[in-house]
Design a protein around this nucleic acid. Sequence first.
DNA 1: GTCCTTTATTGACGATGGTCAATGACAAGC
DNA 2: GCTTGTCATTGACCATCGTCAATAAAGGAC
Lengths: 203, 203
Amino acid sequence: MFKEHQSLVSRYKKEMKNSLAAYLQISEEGIEEIFSAIHFKSYPKGTFLVEPGEVFNDCCLILKGCVRQYHLQDGEEKTTFFFTEDQWFASYYSTAQNKPVPYYLACVEDTVLSVMSIVSEYELFKKYPEFESVCRTGIEEQLEKYQEMLVSFMSSSPMQRYKNVLENRPDLIQRVPQYQLASYLGITPESLSRIRKRISSPK
Amino acid sequence: MFKEHQSLVSRYKKEMKNSLAAYLQISEEGIEEIFSAIHFKSYPKGTFLVEPGEVFNDCCLILKGCVRQYHLQDGEEKTTFFFTEDQWFASYYSTAQNKPVPYYLACVEDTVLSVMSIVSEYELFKKYPEFESVCRTGIEEQLEKYQEMLVSFMSSSPMQRYKNVLENRPDLIQRVPQYQLASYLGITPESLSRIRKRISSPK
DNA sequence: GTCCTTTATTGACGATGGTCAATGACAAGC
DNA sequence: GCTTGTCATTGACCATCGTCAATAAAGGAC
């Protein structure tokens, strides 16, 4: 683990425990048991969390850093998501069906995650229905978010999509190489370059 | 309710009760209570289930028919989803936050739904954790499905998207007017028409 | 620092999509 | 039957995107 991550992690641990206690009206031991199923991990830039062909069994929350999801299509990288601070990801399908995922998850930056295996999650759900409730609500929110992303993507042009990113996730443009951002917008790096030009010098 | 829907509905009711009993290891009365919160409704083609500005409080499963989600953007209809048999939809965000939805849900055909209000759902969750578990799993599946849709949409061209529909939901092409399908694919009716031509007569 | 790889930009050109207008096909209402 | 309105198709024209190639800029390794 990186030196600069060690103090971060101990802070995150405290925060996480406080959040658990705030959201769950259960016994101290319950909180403790759930907390002990959470692992804090630190990865250097470039690390793959999972690669095509592997089963992905974890639910990961980003505490610091950035993770990119992409797959190869005819030799081309297609970037589909950038996860950053406070966003989480998992593949319930891969875990439940024991099927490999078709994509890479790669750290775009040095990254700190809190990780819980889906199996522990399910065991804890049985034991603490209230924990299941909190997680279910989180999943509902995530579902809503993905629906909105889909709607937004379907009903806008590449230029509008770039402007959306500028508006809603301006940090991404600094953090992420442009060719990755381009495929995230569904276009080629050349087109993104021209869109940026068109925006900066509108005739 | 349509005459031809009445016998359908009584069949669906039986099926639904059987499914509940199969998935939930709880008392007869529990099943009965959950079942009684489900309402079966039949709507003629053209009915709006919800319109922009209204709060949407239900979780709807399509037993028969087709529902289209769309919104207006600069006066243009943007179709974002077609829900058909065995698919369900809800807006947990709208219900939980008491915020209006920004879209229409309109029946493209005469449609039969099973409906449960989200409020009853949450009450039943408290009473029957096992019911919550089953629903959570359903939501996880839905989340996974939307992620895949998003990935598929992001990484394919209009022509590929049309071919995907041909492949995966061929019925849609018969059931739905082409101008609605076009905006579902993110293009204009004219472009869809040309894509169809290109496919049918490849030079 | 230099070298080398990766990434970003630019130009040229063909393919595709958007727009507008005209036409054709079809169904509903009278 | 005719009319009307809706939807689908086609053509013309321009904007944008993809592709390929060349060049410039940035970042790492040494």
